[in-house]
C-alpha cells in the first residue's frame, strides 16, 4: 500500500502540510510567550502614568519643547510618541508654525521605531522592526541586547534631529521655489498673534 505513488504523494503532502503549520505555530508561540507579557505590563503602566500626568501638563511641556530647533526635533517628538503614542503623536504638530510642521512630522515619524526599543507601548502595532532584529541579537549575543536597545534609541534621537533640520530647510526652499512665500508669511503672522489651531480656550 505504501508503495502506491498516489498514496506516497498524499502522505508527502499531508506530512509537509502539517509540518508547515506546526513550524508556524512554534514561531507564533515563541512570539506570544517572548514579547507579549512584557508588552502587556508595560502598556498598562504607561497608560496609567499618562492618565496621572494629565493632558494639560503634557501639552505645556510640548509647547515649551517646540520653541527651539534642538528640542523641537528631539524632546518634542520623544514626548509626543511616549505620551500620545503612534499615530496620535502627530497631533502635537498643531502647536507649531505651519513652516515647521513637515519637519516635525518627519522627525516624529522617524522616531516611532527607535522608541520601541525602550518603550514598546509607543508603537506596539509595529514592534517587529525592533523586535525582529533584536531577537536575532538576543540569540547570538544576549549580553549585547541592552546596549543595542539604548544605542538604537540614542542614535534614533540624533537621526531625528538631523531629519528635522534637513526637512525644515527643504520646506523653506520649496516654499520659495513654489512661490508660496506670501501665504506662509500670512501663516507666520497669524501664529505670532497667537492663533494656534486646536487651542481654542
Amino acid at each position: 500500500m505504501g508503495d502506491n505513488p498516489v498514496m506516497r504523494g498524499i502522505s508527502w503532502f499531508a506530512e509537509h502540510f502539517i509540518g508547515l503549520f506546526n513550524e508556524s505555530a512554534t514561531q507564533f508561540a515563541g512570539l506570544v510567550t517572548g514579547i507579549l507579557p512584557l508588552l502587556m505590563v508595560m502598556l498598562t503602566a504607561m497608560y496609567a502614568i499618562t492618565t496621572w500626568i494629565g493632558e494639560e501638563r503634557v501639552t505645556r511641556a510640548i509647547q515649551w519643547a517646540g520653541r527651539w530647533a534642538v528640542t523641537r526635533y528631539t524632546v518634542m517628538p520623544f514626548l509626543a510618541m511616549l505620551l500620545l503614542t503612534n499615530p496620535m503623536a502627530y497631533t502635537f504638530g498643531r502647536f507649531l508654525p505651519e513652516r515647521y510642521k513637515p519637519a516635525f512630522y518627519d522627525s516624529t515619524v522617524s522616531f516611532c521605531h527607535p522608541i520601541t526599543a525602550l518603550f514598546p507601548h509607543a508603537n506596539a502595532g509595529e514592534i517587529f522592526v525592533w523586535a525582529g532584529v533584536s531577537a536575532g541579537v538576543m540569540q547570538a549575543a544576549p549580553d549585547k541586547y541592552a546596549t543595542l536597545a539604548v544605542l538604537y534609541f540614542m542614535v534614533g534621537l540624533i537621526v531625528i534631529l538631523i531629519r528635522g533640520i534637513a526637512t525644515q530647510w527643504m520646506t523653506g526652499v520649496l516654499i520659495k521655489r513654489g512661490g508660496h512665500e506670501e501665504t506662509f508669511k500670512r501663516y507666520d503672522e497669524a501664529y505670532a498673534e497667537g492663533k494656534i489651531q486646536g487651542v481654542a480656550e
Binding site: 496620535m88 502627530y90 504638530g93 498643531r94 510642521k101 513637515p102 512630522y105 516654499i175
Partner: peptide, 21 residues
C-alpha cells in the same frame, strides 16, 4: 498627508511638506 493633517496643517503646508519629507 494624514500625519500633517493630524497636526492641523493647512493644504499649502501639506503640498509643500510631502515633497520636502
Amino acid at each position: 498627508p494624514v500625519g500633517l493633517s493630524l497636526g492641523e496643517a493647512k493644504p499649502e503646508t501639506v503640498s509643500v511638506g510631502v515633497s520636502a519629507v
